[in-house]
Nucleic acid binder design. Structure first.
Lengths: 126, 126
DNA sequence: TAGAATCGGAACGGTTCCGAAACGAATCCG
DNA sequence: CGGATTCGTTTCGGAACCGTTCCGATTCTA
C-alpha cells in the first residue's frame, strides 16, 4: 500500500534514519553503493555488473569497485555464471541480510517517531 | 503523524528513492555527508562543526571535510560567528534548499508508489 | 572456424576521504 | 597580564574512489 509523505516528513524520516545509522558507526556507504546493495537484496535475481550499471546509470568499473567495497564488508559475493562464464552473478550473504534488516528497523523506527509539527522550516538563509 | 513501515516497505522505499536519485545523476553523497546536510536543513540553527561532530559521532576533521564537499556543491556556506570568532556557523543556501526539496519529492513519490506496480520489472535476463 | 561482440575487471592518473596530530586564532580564567 | 582551553582547520601517510582506456576470456555469428 502507498505511503503518503509530505516534503517535511520525507526529509525528517531520511534524516532520522540516516543519522541513527551514522551515530551507531554504520558503514559510511555512498549513495551508489547503498543503491546497489538495496537493488541486489530487494529485486529479483540474477544481478550482474552490466545490469546494475545500466539500471543505475553508473559506469561498469564504478559498479565493479562498489562491489569490491561491499564484498570487503561481507555484504555481497561474486559468483561466476556457469551458463555464461563471462558473466558474474552478485549474490546475497547472511551478513548483508542482517545489515539491511537492521537498517530497515532503523527506517521503520524513524517513521514511527515522525512528529507532525515541522521542527524547523526548511527555508532559505537569513 | 507517525508512519508505519514494514521492513520490506522500508527497504523498498529507500531503494526506490536512492536509485532514482542516482539514476538522475544526483551527487554521490556519503551517508555522513547527507546526514550533515539534512541536519543543517531540518534542525534549528545554529550549527557548528563541533555540534555536528558530537551529535553524529564523527571526528571534527571529517565534519570539516564533509563541509568542504557540501560547500563546493554550493549546498552550504560557512560564516564566522561574530560573538565567538573561533566558531563557524553553517548556513543554508538556496541551491541546497532546492536540492533537498527535489530529493524530498523523490522520497515522497517512492512512498506513493510503494507496492503498487511492476514487482518484476528490472533485470530480467534476455 | 575466423572475426566480431560481450563480459567483468585491471591499469592509469587524479581526486577525495580517513584518523591522528599539530596548528593559529580567539577566548577564558587565575 | 599570561597560561590554559576551545574552535575549526591543516597536514600527514595511506586508503578508496572516479572515468577512461584497454585487456583476457568467453560467446556469438557469418
Amino acid at each position: 500500500m502507498p505511503v503518503f509523505l509530505s516534503q517535511d516528513d520525507a526529509l525528517a524520516l531520511w534524516r532520522e534514519a540516516l543519522c541513527s545509522s551514522v551515530r551507531d558507526d554504520g558503514p559510511d556507504l555512498s549513495a551508489r553503493q547503498m543503491s546497489i546493495l538495496l537493488t541486489v537484496y530487494t529485486l529479483a535475481p540474477p544481478h550482474t555488473v552490466r545490469g546494475l550499471s545500466e539500471s543505475l546509470n553508473i559506469s561498469k568499473p564504478a559498479v565493479s569497485r562498489a562491489l569490491d567495497r561491499l564484498g570487503t564488508l561481507g555484504y555481497i559475493r561474486r559468483r561466476r555464471d556457469d551458463y555464461d562464464r563471462r558473466s558474474v552473478q552478485i549474490q546475497r550473504t547472511v551478513k548483508g541480510a542482517v545489515f539491511l534488516s537492521e537498517f530497515a528497523d532503523i527506517v521503520s523506527r524513524a517513521g514511527r517517531e515522525l512528529q507532525s509539527p515541522t521542527p524547523f522550516e526548511a527555508g532559505v538563509p537569513s
